[in-house]
Amino acid sequence: MRSSAGNAELALLLEVAGTPKPGNVDRHRDLADLCFEHFLAGAVGARDGLELAADGAAVGPAFERAVDGMATQDGGNTQFGALLLLVPLVRAARTELSQPVVEATVEETTVGDAAAFYRAFEHVDVAVADPPDDMAALDVRRGGDAIPELEARGLTLFDVMDRSVPGDDVAREWVRGFDRSFAAAERLAAADGPISDRTAATFLSLLAERPDTLVATRHDEATARSVTDRAAALVEADALETDPSAVEAFAEDLVDRGINPGTTADVTAAGLFIALEHEAIDV
């Protein structure tokens, strides 16, 4: 039987192996600066941090360790957002992997957890939006240099996530009880076929529901909305079953245009972990 840390590592591996995932690295396509092997190495590298969370370590230090390990491969940021979801989920699984327990886990984070989160940005470059003027001193891209201001304001990691919504749907999961992550797990369990196909279908359904906030950050809201509209049309047409070439074309088009719905992939990875922990899918 796999441990929770093992299931989290497996979730990262299954997420990147699912195909097609339009605009994202999968086993059939790479991006200009990231390839399939980088994600495999990132998942393996994150294992020590995931083990810390499974052993009961605080969320912030476990997350920083996971990111540090992830970043040892040559591609850079592969799974930062996914780990920000997985670490508290793994930590919660020590008690019970349910939404109330996960909510309590993130709400109990401390200023120390927030400081570790900021230090994690020193290990890898992460695409984030510019903060409002009154939050400039707390720009996460400042890394450890922002910690004195963080401590002066007494902000916990949950507070930091709360201030990142709207605009960051990984943070939104933290403040909304991981609702999309648990919904993704239910879809994975209800779907038919190999886990790779289920992963692709779940990713596309999530992308069809909400504009991806990473796309909005790197491009603009209109681009993110247009991607969601195209995904919704494919879901409505059941294109993965009736016209898989249309989904493949969508995937290639987004890669060619440098449009990467990475936040949707993060939520998919979280859903895979929940489904694995609940033994709702077999691998």
Results as ranks from 00 to 15, higher is better:
residue 190 A to W: 09
residue 25 V to S: 05
residue 125 D to M: 13
residue 267 V to E: 01
residue 65 R to C: 11
residue 14 L to M: 12
residue 62 A to I: 12
residue 195 I to N: 12
residue 8 A to S: 07
residue 154 G to P: 15
residue 29 R to N: 08
residue 5 A to P: 02
residue 261 P to N: 05
residue 48 D to S: 14
residue 157 L to K: 14
residue 151 E to D: 07
residue 208 A to C: 01
residue 181 S to G: 10
residue 63 F to I: 08
residue 125 D to N: 12
residue 252 E to L: 08
residue 208 A to R: 04
residue 166 P to G: 01
residue 219 H to V: 06
residue 90 V to T: 08
residue 7 N to H: 13
residue 26 D to L: 10
residue 184 A to T: 02
residue 32 A to T: 15
residue 91 R to W: 09
residue 130 D to K: 15
residue 46 A to F: 12
residue 197 D to F: 12
residue 185 A to N: 01
residue 60 G to P: 14
residue 249 A to W: 00
residue 261 P to E: 03
residue 71 A to K: 07
residue 265 A to K: 02
residue 126 V to N: 08
residue 218 R to I: 06
residue 232 A to W: 03
residue 225 R to L: 15
residue 204 L to E: 02
residue 182 F to D: 01
residue 230 R to Y: 01
residue 9 E to M: 09
residue 178 F to T: 02
residue 88 P to R: 13
residue 123 H to Y: 11
residue 82 A to I: 09
residue 180 R to Q: 06
residue 130 D to P: 11
residue 260 N to E: 11
residue 263 T to S: 13
residue 89 L to H: 04
residue 225 R to M: 11
residue 188 L to P: 02
residue 27 R to A: 07
residue 279 E to S: 13
residue 77 N to K: 07
residue 226 S to D: 15
residue 265 A to P: 06
residue 27 R to P: 05
residue 215 V to W: 06
residue 229 D to W: 01
residue 33 D to G: 13
residue 225 R to P: 02
residue 280 A to K: 13
residue 127 A to P: 07
residue 79 Q to S: 08
residue 98 S to T: 15
residue 233 A to Q: 11
residue 181 S to P: 00
residue 194 P to R: 14
residue 86 L to M: 09
residue 149 E to K: 09
residue 69 G to N: 07
residue 253 D to M: 11
residue 199 T to Y: 07
residue 45 G to M: 05
residue 282 D to V: 15
residue 121 F to C: 09
residue 166 P to M: 06
residue 184 A to K: 00
residue 147 I to T: 14
residue 89 L to Y: 04
residue 232 A to Q: 07
residue 82 A to F: 08
residue 175 V to W: 03
residue 230 R to P: 00
residue 108 E to L: 10
residue 61 P to K: 11
residue 157 L to D: 11
residue 98 S to L: 04
residue 243 D to Y: 12
residue 33 D to E: 14
residue 19 T to C: 13
residue 77 N to Q: 07
residue 164 S to I: 02
residue 232 A to V: 00
residue 83 L to C: 01
residue 216 A to F: 09
residue 173 E to R: 05
residue 90 V to W: 07
residue 250 F to S: 01
residue 192 D to A: 13
residue 140 V to M: 12
residue 174 W to Q: 04
residue 193 G to Y: 11
residue 271 G to K: 03
residue 215 V to G: 05
residue 265 A to I: 04
residue 260 N to K: 07
residue 214 L to G: 11
residue 267 V to P: 00
residue 199 T to V: 15
residue 122 E to S: 06
residue 216 A to R: 14
residue 99 Q to I: 01
residue 15 E to S: 01
residue 95 T to K: 13
residue 146 A to W: 06
residue 105 T to K: 03
residue 275 A to P: 00
residue 75 G to P: 00
residue 55 D to G: 03
residue 154 G to M: 10
residue 36 F to T: 00
residue 59 V to L: 14
residue 237 A to C: 09
residue 52 L to H: 10
residue 147 I to S: 04
residue 216 A to Y: 07
residue 266 D to Y: 02
residue 134 D to H: 15
residue 69 G to V: 06
residue 234 L to D: 02
residue 232 A to M: 02
residue 10 L to C: 06
residue 146 A to K: 04
residue 241 E to S: 15
residue 35 C to T: 00
residue 275 A to R: 04
residue 18 G to E: 04
residue 245 S to A: 15
residue 149 E to Y: 10
residue 182 F to C: 03
residue 173 E to H: 03
residue 179 D to K: 10
residue 11 A to G: 02
residue 128 V to K: 09
residue 187 R to T: 00
residue 252 E to W: 00
residue 230 R to D: 07
residue 139 D to M: 06
residue 155 L to P: 08
residue 46 A to M: 11
residue 103 E to F: 01
